[in-house]
Design a protein around this nucleic acid. Structure first.
Length: 251
DNA sequence: CATCTGATGTGCT
DNA sequence: GCACATCAGATGA
């Protein structure tokens, strides 16, 4: 029966829709959901101690929490991740076992946050997993709590006032960093112990609701097309959907 | 919808 | 010097 229940949940996601002009619609839906009626449980060290691909899939559905200095808490459900496997993976910062000042967090214990800057102006957030130099990139989050603050952060960073739809707040690795105020200072912090940033257990995602496909923005020979990107099927907050992978996946 | 382009600056060869 | 795990705006179909 859990399978049936989760199917229903997947359908509900399709219905949370274009009424985002009103702003708070989505937030109300999720706040009243089963997750928010239950205890918010922080994920502990053991959770992160698994192989990179397993961790990337396990992240789907979990809740990222950011506690700001003023006490505001931001919450969102992880809906899209990518695996970077380590030495063998030609697309990884740790390819060939390379260690630099920038990427040391990739070699730290599973659950360690790796934040790096890209294109001079953006950040990306990863979490190290089991395996030497292996880490998971967070690519998209479904915002749950603190949407107004997220919108403010995103507008400040973009230096424009154009109103953002809910789905535009965190649907990309650097967008979610802006929305959650994730910066270089979080690099090498431990997601299992940090006071400002952690993960809480969210509703479990069924394997059949996970789409696996090629990573985004990669051109590294045979590693370009390996299915190392994972996202929740039919979720509106994913950055880039892969229709071919969705239809071939299953019924 | 798809494809292109400029912004921007750090890390690494 | 140049590549870069990106984003936003513009353009054409």
């Amino acid at each position: 029966m859990p399978a049936k229940r989760r199917r229903v949940q997947a359908q509900e996601e399709e219905e949370t829709d274009e009424k985002e002009a009103s702003g708070m619609k989505n937030e109300n839906d999720l706040v009243s959901s089963k997750y928010f009626q239950s205890k918010k449980m922080r994920l502990l060290s053991d959770f992160y101690n698994k192989p990179c691909i397993d961790l990337a899939k396990s992240f789907l559905g979990q809740i990222l929490v950011r506690r700001l200095p003023d006490g505001t808490e931001l919450r969102g459900r992880i809906v899209e991740t990518e695996s970077y496997l380590g030495g063998e993976d030609e697309a990884s910062h740790s390819r060939g076992g390379k260690r630099t000042e920038r990427n040391v967090a990739m070699y730290m214990k599973p659950g360690t946050i790796y934040v790096y800057q890209i294109y001079g102006m953006y950040f990306c957030m990863n979490v190290s997993s089991q395996g030497d130099g292996a880490a998971v990139l967070l690519r998209s989050i479904e915002p749950i709590e603190g949407l107004d603050t997220m919108r403010k952060f995103r507008n400040v960073k973009r230096n424009v006032q154009k109103p953002l739809k809910d789905k535009e707040l965190c649907n990309g690795p650097s967008k979610l960093c802006q929305a959650f105020a994730i910066e270089k200072s979080l690099d090498r912090q431990d997601l299992a112990n940090d006071q400002s940033t952690w993960l809480e257990a969210g509703p479990e995602i069924l394997e059949e609701d996970i789409v696996s496909c090629a990573r985004i923005g990669i051109s590294a020979g045979e590693w370009t097309h390996k299915p190392l990107r994972f996202y929740i099927k039919n979720n509106k907050f994913v950055s880039v959907r892969n229709k071919a992978a969705e239809t071939s996946a299953n019924t």
